[in-house]
Design a protein around this nucleic acid. Sequence first.
DNA 1: CAAGAAAACATGTCATACAGGTTTGGGGCA
DNA 2: TGCCCCAAACCTGTATGACATGTTTTCTTG
Lengths: 240, 240
Amino acid sequence: MVSDRSMTPEETNPGLVSAAIQAITQHIRVEGLGPGDLLPSEADMTRKLSVSRTVVREAFRSLSAMRLIDMSAGRRASVAKLDIGAMSMVIEHGVTTEQISVHQVYDVRRTIEMRTVALAALRRSEAEATEIQEYARLMRENCRAPEIVMEHDIAFHEAIARASHNPVFSLIINAFSGVTRRTWVIGWRTRATEEEQIKMIEGHGDIARAIIAGNPQLAAEHMAAHFDKSVKALIDAGIA
Amino acid sequence: MVSDRSMTPEETNPGLVSAAIQAITQHIRVEGLGPGDLLPSEADMTRKLSVSRTVVREAFRSLSAMRLIDMSAGRRASVAKLDIGAMSMVIEHGVTTEQISVHQVYDVRRTIEMRTVALAALRRSEAEATEIQEYARLMRENCRAPEIVMEHDIAFHEAIARASHNPVFSLIINAFSGVTRRTWVIGWRTRATEEEQIKMIEGHGDIARAIIAGNPQLAAEHMAAHFDKSVKALIDAGIA
DNA sequence: CAAGAAAACATGTCATACAGGTTTGGGGCA
DNA sequence: TGCCCCAAACCTGTATGACATGTTTTCTTG
């Protein structure tokens, strides 16, 4: 087969399945397929590659697990819309196997979100501005229910990433959401007094206002301050 | 409409395979496995989950495609070391299906690398500083051979990411390498004169010197300038 | 011509078989 | 006793066939 290494990063592995994966991704590229477009059936691929259906299926299934394609019973597979896909799994794997620390994740988030928030301040539509503001309001309103605050917190940051109008930022931020869910409460608990908790929530209000005002500089400063406080809370909780 | 995947991001899909994937990742988590540790054999999993080996295999294979686990004939699967894994495939998929533009990738890289270069200036070991400098030198030395310059260019940026001592940055930067390989030459060609090409290579020298000098501010400025020039070159080439 | 049934096609899962790689344990030899 | 080598046990890689179930197409029939 082609097995042209150094081209695609997919699989330098030997093995028929890896070759099949490459054949499928190459098919997408060569045919110029976009989201929703149909791929060949397993039977077609089986014939084209002269391998068993087992192999072809494992290849399709792998791409499906990465959410590069959509599969469902009875229907042929199709090219998937952009999705955090495997990205979040990679991150989570790194964290659960202790190859990545939560602190490191936060540093990356801080770096990226200082940019997304600045872009959001410049590019957000009215609807996006309203959405962001709404999440900040919901956090304030539910300040007695940590779980709910957390979900709106995450939604808040995702909305900002979306408003940056760069899907790659959204992709990365969304990939971190899982880790955030597992550590958020810890940070919350270290904020002993209710006053401190409200101050943290108000940090989101500051950010939202800066975005609405269209002030990227200010928005970035508030975001930085927010992260610095969050990281400090995690460190106080003993999470390095 | 907010997606409701509130728990793990792995698979909200129905289906035995998705369940098996979750069972395996959960096994890793619960047993606290780290890189290199062995997973149960396919036969074990088949018994534990009461499904056919086909299903278990597709699950293992999916995780292997994401490089969360290592598989090889005769040996049981093991937990994988952190690797760009599926991340690069997600990015490439987004670009080839035109859901992500090259310009957007460069914006993300600029954002991240302004941080990695600053961290590198602060944290780099002597060996890392030497390595970074060496790649800059090799670029200068091979300035007549674009392919070689490109590979050293990529290695240069990856080395900086490594020197930031945050594996998440490395992960992301490495995930972009594939896209870079496909667009780098285009940017190079727009630098018509040899003088301009040398100036671009010298930009890397500036960055390296700032890192060695331990000056994060200056390093970040040089990196920003470098990216601004690169993006301009791509835009001149008609890649939006 | 339209509605509905049947056929064709697709994926989901299972069982079985065998080739070839890896680990393990035991037997034979020094 | 201690070491080496080989066979058995175990494991993954691939192929084949079968059947359930879901989807699309086609054709019949009212």
